[in-house]
C-alpha cells in the first residue's frame, strides 16, 4: 500500500528524474495548481520549462464541514508542467502510473475528452480527464491560451488529484481514512489527523463567517494593487495580487454574496487582471531578451 506521502515522493522522484525542477508549493491561496505562477506565467513566452510541485488548492465552495467522504475545501494537486509538450508525453505519463503501482493488466485506463477553460484566467486548453477504473485521477491538458495570449510553444499540464489517486491506491472510501505516513497502529497518521480540523473550520469560515464587506474591500485593494504593480513592470508581485483577487472572489461566491450579474462582472475583472499580468510578463521577457 502506498501512503499519501509516498505517492508524493514517487511522483517527485519520477518527474525529477525526467528533468523537472521539483518546486515547493506556491505560498498563496490558489484554486488549482494552474493558478501558480510556476504554471500560469511560465506557459507564456517561447522559453522551455519543466517543473513539478505539489499545490494545495482551496475551493471554498467545495467544503463540507469534514462530513462528506469525498468533498473537501482544500485538496492537493501534483502538478507537472512541461514546455514544449514532448511527443511521447502520454507514454511518459502512463509510466508514472506504473511507478505508483498501477498494473495495466488489471486496470482500465481511459483518456476521456475534457476541454479545460478557466474564465477567470482567460485560459483554455484541450485534453482529457484520465480515468482509472472509472475514477478521474488526472487532468491532462495542452494549453492553447493563457491570459488571452496564444501559447507557442505549447505547455502540457498534468494535474494528478492526489486524494483521488491515494483513495484508489489504498482502496478506501473515505478521504479522511487515508494513511498519510504509511505507519500502522499508534504511529499511523491519517488524513483525518492532518486535515479534519481545517475542513470543519474553513467550511464554517467560507460559508458562514467570512465578512462579506471585508472580502469586497480586499478584492478592490488587490485589484488596484495588481494594476499599479503591473504598471510598474513587476509582473510577479502584480500576479500575486491577481491570485488574491481570484481567491477572494471564490470566498464571496461560497458566501453566496454575489448576484448572477455581479458574479459575471467580477470574473471579468479577475480575467482583466490576469491578462494585464501576462502582458507585463511578456514585456519583461522581451526586455530581458534584448538586454
Amino acid at each position: 500500500m502506498k501512503s499519501f506521502q509516498e505517492i508524493i515522493f514517487l511522483l517527485s522522484s519520477y518527474w525529477g528524474a525526467y528533468g523537472c525542477a521539483i518546486l515547493q508549493s506556491y505560498d498563496l491561496e490558489v484554486g488549482a495548481g494552474t493558478f501558480s505562477p510556476y504554471t500560469f506565467l511560465r506557459a507564456l513566452g517561447d522559453g522551455s520549462w519543466k517543473a513539478a510541485y505539489v499545490q494545495p488548492s482551496r475551493r471554498p465552495a467545495d467544503g463540507r464541514y469534514g462530513e462528506n467522504p469525498n468533498r473537501i475545501h482544500k485538496h492537493h494537486q501534483f502538478q507537472v508542467v512541461i514546455k514544449p509538450s514532448p511527443d511521447d508525453i502520454q507514454d511518459v505519463y502512463l509510466k508514472s502510473l506504473e511507478v505508483l503501482g498501477i498494473d495495466y493488466r488489471r486496470h482500465d485506463i481511459r483518456f476521456v475528452e475534457d476541454d479545460w477553460e478557466s474564465p477567470t484566467l482567460g485560459a483554455a486548453g484541450l485534453g482529457w480527464e484520465v480515468w482509472c477504473d472509472g475514477m478521474e485521477i488526472t487532468q491532462f491538458t495542452y494549453f492553447q491560451q493563457v491570459g488571452g495570449f496564444n501559447c507557442s510553444p505549447v505547455t502540457v499540464e498534468l494535474t494528478y488529484g492526489l486524494e483521488r489517486l491515494a483513495m484508489f491506491l489504498q482502496k478506501v472510501d473515505n478521504v479522511f481514512d487515508l494513511n498519510w505516513n504509511g505507519k500502522d497502529g499508534v504511529e499511523k497518521i491519517t488524513y483525518r489527523d492532518v486535515c479534519l480540523q481545517q475542513e470543519v473550520e474553513f467550511s464554517k469560515y467560507s460559508f458562514e463567517h467570512a465578512d462579506i464587506e471585508n472580502l469586497k474591500r480586499h478584492f478592490k485593494d488587490a485589484e488596484q494593487e495588481c494594476l499599479r504593480l503591473a504598471e510598474l513592470q513587476l509582473p510577479l508581485p502584480a500576479y500575486d495580487q491577481c491570485m488574491k483577487a481570484s481567491h477572494l472572489f471564490n470566498l464571496l461566491d461560497s458566501r453566496r454574496a454575489l448576484s448572477v450579474a455581479e458574479r459575471v462582472d467580477r470574473i471579468a475583472r479577475v480575467r482583466a487582471l490576469a491578462k494585464i499580468c501576462c502582458k507585463a510578463q511578456l514585456d519583461a521577457e522581451n526586455t530581458n531578451c534584448q538586454g
Binding site: 467522504p69 482500465d108 482509472c132 477504473d133 475514477m135 482502496k171 472510501d173
Partner: peptide, 16 residues
Amino acid sequence: EIIKGNERVLNARLAD
C-alpha cells in the same frame, strides 16, 4: 479489480 474500482466510484456518487 476494474469492476470493484467502478463500483467504488459509483457508490461515492450515489452516497452523495
